[in-house]
Design a protein around this nucleic acid. Structure first.
Length: 572
RNA sequence: CGGGGCGUAGCGCAGUCUGGUUAGCGCGCCUGGUUCGGGACCAGGAGGUCGGUGGUUCGAAUCCACUCGCCCCGACCA
């Protein structure tokens, strides 16, 4: 490929809208361009990277016996209504109507479409197991797209679906995917942490996410350095960090400051973990109840809803009517309202909370002595310092990018849609399913987040847009040009080669080369030519050698192989 | 949906508070010449509905109202 004729619109300056490393470098390197919020075009370099990634994915999926199909992105509402997800998806689903006024959705995922295929064609236990996959664009109207390609509204996903006769079969298909995913990410030089996760809208029993640690990630994961326990923070059942509770008398004190935890803690010189946050909620019937939690924790609404159903926080006037005080100065003490306590307050003593009178608090609260707790529950957002549920040592909490997610669906979709088969005894049974996704662009973006320096991207060899970049520093030097062309021809037999035949200065070419991050670079310049040599180097800086042009194939091959020895980055 | 920021040439920005010649600067682009191992130099040139609509005014990029778009944070803290 000749650079002079290529669409590689590199940018010298950082585009205004970009924040993440990957976003900046994808734009600056001419890999992608935004069309509108959360929707991107892939330019030649970006598309080359994505194709390399998809090829790795294909090879590994084919290796476990999966078969590739391509399903429609345009789907009728009726199929989503069969499982109830036409309503469940809500605003996240892009919807449209045809000219007859019928409803359609641009598929955000394909469980229903795959299950439809299965119910048509799988009739007997003899047809099972099956694994079908596709690589195609998904459409999700995300609440907030972010980080360019990290959370986009249109994005390429590899999704596969397994069909088995029973749980044992599902277990095997799940394990096959687990292994395939591990290999896929390793081949892209990304070291993943596998965590247990919540299955959310997909439903099903068990699920795992393949994560790469990165500050650019919007997921938070928990890792235990001691026993290896790991989970998405959403589902991690961590033990609250232990604290000392002093004992004391119940006393009412004047607190003429704002009612926030920080203000009260500062005013009374009491650590935040000795404050008891008292939150007043209204249940579905409009009856009030208190939730109390240690001051250094926040209530996790997802867990709250799971436990108490469709509840809401009390309005300011409701709080006033029920407690006689404003939010910030309330507590269940002395009130006849049911109280649930987060487990962080178990055996709590010497606590501070509102006295149900503005600008007054109680100190010395003893959970067992002064409160009637209906039940201890786990509804807090875990934080640093919490203990591992397996071995009770302190866990690490880190941001991560989710690259893959595998789900055991069970029979949720097959039952809802009537995808059944006849077993060996002639009985009709629902197919047992799994579903498995990989974000193709996320692999690209994550690789950049991990592999870059101040000058640009340093692509992992297997997913680089080109393997080798040949740069004649001055194309008006006809001898240099001729030598370069010859090398390009030879190298192209075994590698993807980009040839910088542009008539621009050497500095310009070097800067661009660093930016787009091609792993191996061959420079033909006067300095080397004096000795009859050219320079071959790796973008990662590990090697730089001068060689005769006719050895180029052999030397490039060697540097290319050396790349494979590089460590796989995990983002730590 | 709530909060914040930003829309001026292809890109990055100044000008807006305090209205007033022809709306600037750097990079990029075009022509000619010089230059070639880390984003060169000289000379000349093209390129703008100042996001949009309406209003105030003798006069609006600038003030007011509405609106569209993009980015960031949040959608917990009694």
């Amino acid at each position: 490929m000749n650079w002079s004729k290529a669409l590689i619109p590199t940018l010298k300056e950082v585009p205004r809208e970009a924040v993440n490393k990957s976003h900046i470098l994808l734009l600056r390197g001419g890999f992608i361009r935004a069309l509108t919020s959360g929707v991107y075009s892939y330019l030649p370099l970006g598309w080359r990277v994505l194709k390399k990634i998809m090829n790795i994915v294909r090879e590994e999926m084919d290796r476990i016996g999966a078969q590739e199909v391509l399903l429609p992105a345009l789907t009728p509402s009726s199929i989503w209504e069969e499982t109830g997800r036409w309503d469940e998806f809500g605003g996240e689903m892009f919807r449209l109507k045809d000219r007859k006024g019928r409803d359609y959705a641009l598929a955000p995922t394909h469980e229903e479409i795959m299950t439809e295929l299965a119910r048509k064609h799988i009739k007997s236990y003899r047809d099972l197991p099956q694994i079908w996959y596709q690589i195609q664009i998904k459409y999700r109207d995300e609440i907030r797209p972010r980080g360019a390609v990290l959370r986009a509204r249109t994005f390429i996903m590899k999704d596969s679906y397994s069909f088995d006769i029973d749980e044992d079969g599902l277990e095997k298909s799940y394990a096959l995917h687990y292994d395939a995913y591990t290999r896929i990410f390793e081949r892209a030089w990304l070291k993943t942490t596998v965590v247990s996760a919540s299955s959310g809208l997909m439903g099903g029993s068990e699920s795992h996410e393949f994560m790469v640690l990165s500050d650019a990630g919007e997921d938070v994961i928990v890792k235990c350095p001691k026993c290896g326990y790991s989970a998405n923070l959403e589902v991690a059942n961590l033990i609250p960090s232990p604290v000392d509770f002093p004992s004391g008398e119940l006393k009412k004190v004047h607190t003429p400051v704002g009612g926030s935890v920080r203000e009260i803690s500062e005013f009374l010189s009491v650590p935040e973990h000795l404050l008891m946050k008292s939150l007043l909620y209204m249940d579905e019937n409009g009856s009030p109840f208190f939730v109390v939690i240690r001051g250094d924790y926040d209530v996790n609404e997802e867990l709250l809803f799971k436990k108490f159903g469709n509840v809401r926080q009390a309005e300011p006037d409701e709080i006033k009517n029920l407690t006689g005080a404003s939010a910030g100065y309330i507590s269940p003490i002395g009130l006849d309202i049911p109280v649930y306590a987060d487990r962080s307050l178990e055996k709590g003593k010497g606590l501070v909370s509102g006295a149900n009178e503005d600008f007054y608090h109680y100190t010395g609260i003893d959970i067992e002595r002064d409160l009637k707790i209906k039940e201890f529950v786990d509804i807090r957002t875990p934080h640093e310092g919490d203990l591992c549920p397996e071995c009770r040592s302190k866990v690490e909490i880190k941001n991560a990018i989710e690259l893959g997610h595998i789900f055991k669906l069970g029979t949720k979709y097959s039952k809802a849609m009537g995808a059944t088969f006849t077993d060996a005894n002639g009985k009709s049974k629902p197919i047992v399913m799994g579903s498995y996704g990989i974000g193709i662009e996320r692999i690209m973006a994550t690789a950049i987040e991990l592999y870059n320096d101040e000058n640009g991207i340093i692509w992992p060899d297997p997913i680089a847009p080109f393997d080798v970049l040949v740069i004649p520093l001055d194309i008006r030097d006809s001898k240099a040009l001729e030598i370069s062309r010859k090398m390009v021809n030879i190298l192209e037999e075994t590698h993807d080669v980009l040839f910088d035949d542009r008539d621009v200065g050497p500095g310009f070419k070097f800067k661009d080369a660093d930016l787009i991050g091609i792993p191996v670079r061959v420079v033909v310049g006067p300095r080397g030519l004096k000795e009859g040599k050219v320079e071959v180097s790796r973008r990662d800086g590990s090697e730089k050698i001068m060689i005769e042009p006719d050895r180029v194939q052999e030397v490039v091959e060697k540097l290319w192989k050396n790349g494979k020895e590089l460590r796989k980055k995990s983002g730590e």
